[in-house]
Write a protein that binds this DNA or RNA. Structure first.
Lengths: 164, 164
DNA sequence: TATTGTTATACTCTATAACTATA
DNA sequence: TATAGTTATAGAGTATAACAATA
């Protein structure tokens, strides 16, 4: 790509493409906004996730829920929802779906019969074990433009920002 | 909050709260994933945006579209969609809404009568001018935990990551 | 034939309020 | 009276495919 002939053609026809190319779009004050930049970065990361893990039938949200239950066996549904910034009403539907799919088990808490304690089933544990390496690989590929030091810095700053 | 009496009570009843508190939730491998951290940070930033700009009837997506049109008068709809990682079919609906609301004007391109060139109306320009200071303030408040150097670093790394 | 944009549609995600059952 | 979770529902956001008009 980018032969001498191509370059010559571009030089010869500077006014041919008057329209704005995607790469030349100006974002003005937007790149100063962390909210905007974080959103663009997230879109890029999720694109990669979906492309690499579509076949496994797992999405970013479900993955984070399953991993967090695995790391905190018996975690209550409301605590899980608050930790991942998901509304209780939405978490109820997700957990019911995961229960129907035999990935998660809901146990009534002995100390409070209103509460559910969540556990991964064997199937859930296997799914996490199988998906996690692919997720890590996808994440690494999507961030390959950053060197290890930059990656560490980025994770540290995002952790500080999101309070984790 | 946190009186001596409270502390004494906590010391006397260490087994009382056996349940996991939100702050103690373990995320295991998730914080190593840039995709997860970027998602958590984005949720936090958007929460702040909605809280601070709900009254103005503006959302993060609409704001970025209006600002980008303002910075690139005459930008084509498809170029705008690609630049902001929005599907053409979805951008069509958004731009029609903005046109109906008299914030954006669609002009048929002279060089290609299939294409729309987008411009802000006076109303659109005024909305941007009025909202932008509030958006900046909200962004600054939501990122106040980071010092200026950290903010600069974070923006630089996110820009590199998202290719802007 | 390829490209620009539109329509229809479906699915996910998110937000709110009213509800139940326990505490 | 408060809390854990559910249900219903509405609104955004996103993805795909079929389509019209123009190049």
């Amino acid at each position: 790509m980018g032969s001498d002939i191509d370059d010559a053609l571009v030089d010869d026809a500077p006014a041919k493409r008057e329209e704005l190319a995607v790469a030349d779009v100006q974002f003005g004050p937007l790149p100063e906004l962390v909210g905007f930049m974080v959103r663009q970065a997230q879109l890029r990361m999720f694109e990669a996730f979906y492309a690499d893990l579509a076949d496994d039938g797992i999405r970013p949200g479900l993955a984070s829920i399953l991993v967090t239950i695995g790391e905190n066996p018996g975690i209550r549904q409301g605590v899980l929802a608050d930790a991942l910034r998901i509304k209780w009403s939405n978490m109820a539907k997700i957990v019911r779906y995961l229960d129907d799919d035999a990935l998660v088990e809901r146990r009534v808490a002995k100390s409070d019969r209103r509460a559910f304690e969540l556990h991964l089933t064997d199937r859930g544990r296997k799914l996490v074990a199988r998906a996690l390496p692919k997720i890590r690989a996808s994440d690494r590929r999507a961030t390959a433009i950053l060197d290890p030091d930059e990656l560490t810095t980025l994770r540290t700053l995002l952790a500080k920002l999101s309070g984790i």
